[in-house]
């Protein structure tokens, strides 16, 4: 019996994998004030689930396609300034349309809760491969484009003066977001993906004085949250996805309080 046979071990690996790709990407979401953008992309995932079930595609592929479509759509529409309300409209419309679309599927009995809140304890070896593949892809992209991402986040015209096309960097970030959504839906579900992006990054903020430190700290907080959340879910028999997000929130409060005391 190999180690991966334990469902708890698989769950832990899945949680940690998603957390360490979501957290650094989440830093950019926070710095660029794109929280609603993340929501819209994540909520479109439910529409992707419906698409996958209707067409027979793997759920991962359906979610990835739909998240990309949504991210590109809102990214293109709001190139000038991301209007809060417009993004919220997109986010909730996508979620509602997805839920309605799933209900239309005849003959398919699915547990929609698994897609809304995640089903980390049911992660298979195949899921693990997809999760870690996606994580490797996103981390490589972030490491490769780090300086360009950071420059275009600071100021688009400054980036341009240095020969960096901010629109292209935003597009790459958007695609990375779609990948994270697609791998995270199994772990925390469409409703809580944004939490995994934003809470670890926000918790890491007071710990860091450079963007690199903040991204690393966010990954650490994310991974610890995944493990702590799983442990709590096991001990207290609570839903795993929400428990992971609660753990992240716990770290956020802890870091905020500690930093206020020390400053």
């Amino acid at each position: 019996m190999s180690l991966l046979d334990g469902f708890l071990v698989r769950a832990a690996l899945a949680g940690v994998g998603v957390a360490i790709s979501a957290a650094p990407l989440g830093c950019f979401i926070v710095w660029r004030r794109m929280a609603f953008f993340g929501d819209a992309t994540a909520h479109a995932a439910i529409l992707g689930v419906a698409l996958a079930l209707a067409s027979g595609l793997p759920v991962f592929v359906g979610v990835l396609l739909m998240a990309m479509a949504m991210a590109l759509f809102v990214g293109w529409r709001d190139a000038a300034q991301s209007a809060d309300a417009a993004l919220a409209v997109a986010a909730y419309s996508a979620l509602a349309a997805g839920l309605v679309a799933v209900s239309f599927l005849e003959g398919v009995r699915i547990d929609i809760e698994a897609f809304l809140f995640g089903d980390i304890l049911a992660v298979s070896r195949g899921d693990l491969a997809v999760i870690w593949g996606g994580t490797a892809l996103v981390i490589s992209l972030i490491v490769w484009r780090w300086d360009a991402f950071l420059s275009s986040t600071l100021n688009e015209d400054l980036a341009l003066a240095a020969g960096i096309d901010a629109r292209r960097e935003q597009l790459l970030l958007t695609l990375a977001l779609a990948v994270v959504v697609a791998v995270a839906i199994k772990v925390v579900g469409a409703l809580l993906i944004s939490a995994l992006l934003i809470i670890p990054a926000s918790a890491a903020r007071p710990l860091a004085s450079t963007p690199e430190r903040m991204a690393q700290a966010a990954a650490g907080v994310g991974a610890l949250s995944a493990l702590l959340g799983l442990w709590a879910a096991w001990i207290f028999d609570t839903p795993a996805g929400p428990s992971i997000v609660c753990a992240a929130a716990f770290f956020f409060v802890g870091c905020s309080v500690l930093s206020r005391k020390s400053s």
């Binding site: 926070v30 710095w31 660029r32 004030r33 300086d147 360009a148 950071l150 420059s151 986040t153 600071l154 100021n155 015209d157 400054l158 980036a159 341009l160 003066a161 240095a162 960096i164 990054a201 926000s202 903020r205 860091a208 004085s209 450079t210 963007p211 430190r213 903040m214």
Partner: peptide, 27 residues
């Protein structure tokens, strides 16, 4: 080679960035 000084630089407070690191970007 163009050097550019923008009208304003609106950095979000959530982005930690020292002056030294700022000058190190993008190279």
């Amino acid at each position: 080679r163009i050097g550019y000084v923008p009208q304003k630089l609106a950095i979000d407070r959530t982005l930690p960035m020292t002056v030294g690191r700022f000058l190190d970007l993008p190279k």
